[in-house]
Design a protein around this nucleic acid. Structure first.
Length: 541
RNA sequence: GGUGGGUUCGUAUAACGGUUAGUACUCAAGAUUCUCAAUCUUGCAAUAGGAGUUCGAUUCUCCUACCCACUACCA
């Protein structure tokens, strides 16, 4: 049994999006599960589409997710150019492997599996448009290659002259006619394709002396002794070509097994998740924030406040399931549970609500100190210097109400600054619309405020509410008891608990919702509480 | 257009010929509470359509529909 070796082979043509991260993750999980090696290879054979910073972005993203390569362009982004004991398969950047590919391409020409093609881009464009005009599709294969300009149709000496004098030729694969390629995919099973529908793909370009994806991919996977190729479904159509290439090289016995992952689809409508969707629909599609060369900014999961563990977890569950009802997995837990035969076949629509839910679950699992450390910078941005221990106490009370650390502030600003405005903030958003529901004319607040005249939590009614005698009762209660006995005091006096408490709440929080009164008083202290009572009286009284 | 792939509640998915078709997210209702959350309980909601194989099809086969990918000297 060969040692498991898998690779993630992104192209640095832009930021890695979440679909790419998922592919990397599944490769990583598969490698770890099988005690194998996870290789990161950079496929930068397209000199025209190179984007500065993209490779660094890819590496940083993987690092943030904790999906660290064992081998290859490593987590520090270090260039590994020379093979060594640790890196026998180096270099791992295809642009640095340039000399390797030509020799393999020419080997295929010699063995009759490929040929030189001299057609210019314009010639081919002409062929395509001509075919299109007559309602057909131009395809460079057995049906047309005999009429085109290549080493199959030209005399040997002329071919040699062309090879010498021109630098725009390519090497194309000689796709056999009418052969059925029988393939086996680890997630899709048995697949058959007839080669007559396939074309003579370009394998190598003289212009930049670089291979195309197909050649580089096969050669490198072979040389790097990759055992399983786990990649996106968009590669399925080129699988027959890849099979045929392994065969042409005589490598079929060591050919890796293939697994084509289902695509990640956009949340609404159809089609795969694309760059633009996130900002249109209010969620990130990239792991990290990315600014392109035009200065456009794309948001990232990291900057949006997602924990990397949550991001990895939610990604893992898109297209794979453990076969149990467990949903929360650490990275190690995923390694343990992962298996390719639990990977689904159909595309998975990404659901932002579920993503938030995952983060909420992780937020609740964090300890208060850790969350406090994350919250303090947010507070500092608001100009608030708070004692660490105090923030820890705050966090322990509010963390269950949030999905993200950033929300801590909006949940309870009143624990740090005294309210100066009073409003209906916190009244259920749905309350207003529910009132309009003819079937349910009853005000949902009525269960608390049986008396409609004293059910005034809309901003314009704060004043009216304020004129109640409850303020006097509340003040009396606060002066004569403390946070723990406040409730008892009010009860003993026979006062309406809810009304008095809510009067206090308005004074302490500035709104009609929030933590328990006792919790708030414990945090801000009795004196501050009384000060706020005093202020609200001046303000509204 | 051609080729390949796909199709279970709105979404992610379970059920690898026999279940009242399960779970989670979302949404709604109820319980609880000093409010709001949280929590708990309940509810809404699906096998794309049609043939066939079978005692029995979500599951196997075929056809139709729809969706997706690929169809570059891009990956």
């Amino acid at each position: 049994m060969k040692k498991t070796r898998v690779r993630f082979a992104p192209s640095p043509t832009g930021p890695l999006h979440m679909g790419g991260v998922r592919t990397a993750l599944y490769n990583y999980l598969y490698a770890k599960k099988n005690g194998g090696t996870f290789v990161l290879r950079i496929e930068d054979t397209d000199s025209h589409r190179f984007v500065p910073g993209a490779e660094e972005y890819i590496i940083e993203s993987l690092k943030w997710c904790g999906i660290l390569p064992d081998e290859g362009v490593d987590a520090s982004g270090k260039v590994v150019e020379t093979p060594s004991e640790k890196h026998p398969y180096a270099p791992y950047r295809q642009s640095q492997r340039k000399p390797i590919y030509r020799k393999y391409a020419e080997q295929l020409v010699r063995s009759g599996h490929a040929y030189y093609a001299f057609d210019s881009a314009e010639d081919l464009e002409l062929c395509r448009s001509r075919a299109e005009n007559s309602g057909e599709t131009f395809i460079y294969n057995y049906s047309t290659r005999k009429t085109l300009c290549n080493s199959l149709t030209m005399p040997q000496d002329e071919v040699e002259k062309m090879l010498e004098s021109r630098n725009d030729w390519t090497i194309r694969f000689l796709m056999p006619e009418n052969r059925t390629v029988v393939m086996e995919d680890l997630v899709r099973g048995h697949i058959e394709v007839n080669t007559s529908t396939l074309d003579d793909k370009v394998l190598w370009k003289r212009a930049d002396e670089l291979p195309t994806y197909h050649l580089a991919n096969i050669v490198d996977d072979h040389l790097m002794e990759i055992t399983e190729v786990i990649r996106g479904e968009e590669w399925l159509p080129s699988l027959p070509l890849h099979y045929l290439l392994y065969e042409a090289f005589g490598w079929q016995d060591s050919m890796p097994r293939f697994a084509h992952l289902p695509l990640l689809l956009k949340p609404v409508g159809n089609g795969k998740l694309s760059k633009r969707d996130g900002d249109k629909m209010g969620f990130p599609v990239f792991p990290l924030k990315w600014t392109n060369s035009q200065g456009e900014v794309y948001r990232g999961y990291r900057e949006d406040g997602y924990f990397p563990e949550a991001f990895v977890n939610l990604l893992a569950m898109l297209g794979w399931n453990p076969g149990t009802e467990q949903e929360i997995f650490s990275l190690d837990g995923l390694v343990e549970a992962f298996s390719l035969d639990k990977v689904g076949k159909s595309g998975a629509k990404f659901n932002p609500d579920k993503a938030k839910w995952f983060n909420k679950e992780y937020l609740r699992m964090k300890d208060d100190e850790q969350l406090a450390r994350l919250f303090i910078p947010v507070l500092e941005q608001k100009g608030i210097q708070a004692d660490f221990e105090y923030v820890v106490r705050v966090v322990s009370l509010i963390k269950e109400r949030a999905s993200f650390v950033q929300e801590f502030w909006t949940i309870a600003p009143y624990l740090f600054i005294a309210p100066r405005e009073y409003s209906a903030h916190g009244v259920k958003a749905g309350a207003a619309s529910r009132q309009e529901d003819a079937k349910r004319p009853a005000d949902p607040r009525a269960k608390v405020y049986d008396d409609a005249a004293t059910a005034p939590f809309l901003a314009k009614d704060v004043d009216k509410f304020w004129k109640q005698e409850y303020y006097e009762a509340a003040l009396d209660a606060m002066q004569n008891s403390d946070a723990d006995t406040l409730e008892d005091y009010i009860r003993q006096k026979g006062l309406p608990l809810g009304k008095v408490m809510n009067c206090i709440r308005l004074a302490l929080t500035g709104s009609s919702s929030g933590l328990g009164i006792a919790d708030i008083m414990h945090l801000i202290g009795k004196q501050e509480s009384l000060d706020r009572m005093d202020y609200i009286k001046q303000r509204l009284g």
